[in-house]
Amino acid sequence: MSLDGVVCSVVIPTYNAAHLIGQQLEALTVQEGAPSFEVVVADNKSTDDLAAVIESWQDRLPHLRVVDASRGQGVSVARNVGIEHASTDRILICDADDVVAPAWVRAFHQSLDDHTLVSGPAETVSLSGPSAGWVPIEQESTGLYQTWGGRTYGLGGNTAMRREVWEAVGGYDETFPAGAEEIDFAWRAWDLGYRFTYVPEALLHYRIRTDLKGVLRQQYNSGRGTATLYNKFRPAEVVPKSLPRRVHHELLLLKQFPWRGSGDARRMWLTLMAFEAGKLVEARRLDSPAP
């Protein structure tokens, strides 16, 4: 047990989210059946009025505080700093621009009684609107996400763990491109014998960028992360495409442009291309085959 009876820590990595974080903090004030918890906002070099916004919420969230996560740029830096400053051994991670459901804290806290690493479902429609249909992910997930070889992982902004997992894994890789850093963490945890457990009650409302430019940047970064993941682990079950196969693959994608499709269909095609571009650019930079 921790300071003032606090038994778990909610860590929120944050960068220039003063205009959005209030929705997440509001959600944390109405948690149902939750134990006493603290909220640690890890400020990753924000230049907006985040400090003033956080101060305005401290009467409603008495264990809310901001910690300086400016030693480097990136979500992995902020997560690591937030966890370092957390006062408990039960770490619940969410992002500043999303919204957790009312049972989120209770569900994750209880699940950590029996498990060391957990994640829950995410739905994308309520905060994202039409852009939820632009990206190739489920609009409401029903289980853990899977990668090569059946390895599972949880969404980085909807994860909880005991501190021992974070310490054993060595934290989030602060050099890893944003977009697949949670998969890298999950793979390293997997190699140490830690497995994600799915907690259906720990629902997260996930915000996809609502402007096309932001969505494309998000998918480009995800492609970069995928290429980095392959370069780092080189899973035997993944056979990189030869140059002729790669060219054929890209030409097929180009031919799939939905000339007669809806605007949303075209935007989805663009997001696929952004992912592919990020993957190829990063693979070239790393001098590694693209998966």
Score class of each variant (00 low, 15 high):
Gly278Asp: 09
Tyr145Gln: 04
Gly133Asp: 14
Tyr198Ser: 07
Ala180Tyr: 02
Ala96Asn: 13
Leu155Cys: 08
Gly261Tyr: 04
Asn221Met: 11
Thr14Asp: 07
Asp59Pro: 00
Asn44Ala: 13
Val281Gly: 00
Asn16Leu: 02
Thr159Ser: 14
Ser87Thr: 15
Val125Thr: 12
Met161Leu: 15
Tyr172Ile: 08
His248Ile: 02
Ala160Trp: 04
Thr88Ser: 14
Arg267Tyr: 01
Val10Ala: 10
Ala34Lys: 04
Pro177Trp: 03
Glu174Cys: 15
Trp134Cys: 06
Val281Ala: 14
Leu25Glu: 06
Lys241Met: 14
Gln218Ser: 13
Lys45Pro: 00
Ile83Tyr: 11
Ala189His: 05
Gly33Met: 08
Ala17Met: 08
Trp57Arg: 09
Val135Asn: 04
His115Phe: 14
Gln58Ile: 02
Arg195Gly: 06
Val6Ala: 12
Tyr145Glu: 04
Asp68His: 11
Leu204His: 11
Pro289Tyr: 05
Leu117Asn: 10
Pro291Thr: 03
Val30Arg: 14
Tyr206Lys: 06
Tyr230Pro: 07
Pro121Trp: 01
Asn221Cys: 12
Lys213Asn: 15
Asp43Glu: 01
Phe176Pro: 11
His85Thr: 06
Val118Pro: 07
Val10Leu: 10
Gly150Pro: 04
Ala69Met: 08
Trp166Gln: 08
Leu28Ser: 12
Val165Leu: 09
Arg245Met: 04
Ile93Lys: 13
Val81Thr: 15
Val281Leu: 06
Tyr153Ile: 01
Asp59Tyr: 00
Glu167Pro: 00
Gln110Asn: 14
Ala17Arg: 12
Lys255Leu: 15
Gly214Lys: 08
Leu117Val: 10
Gln146Cys: 01
Pro13Lys: 04
Pro235His: 05
Ser126Gln: 12
Leu61Ala: 09
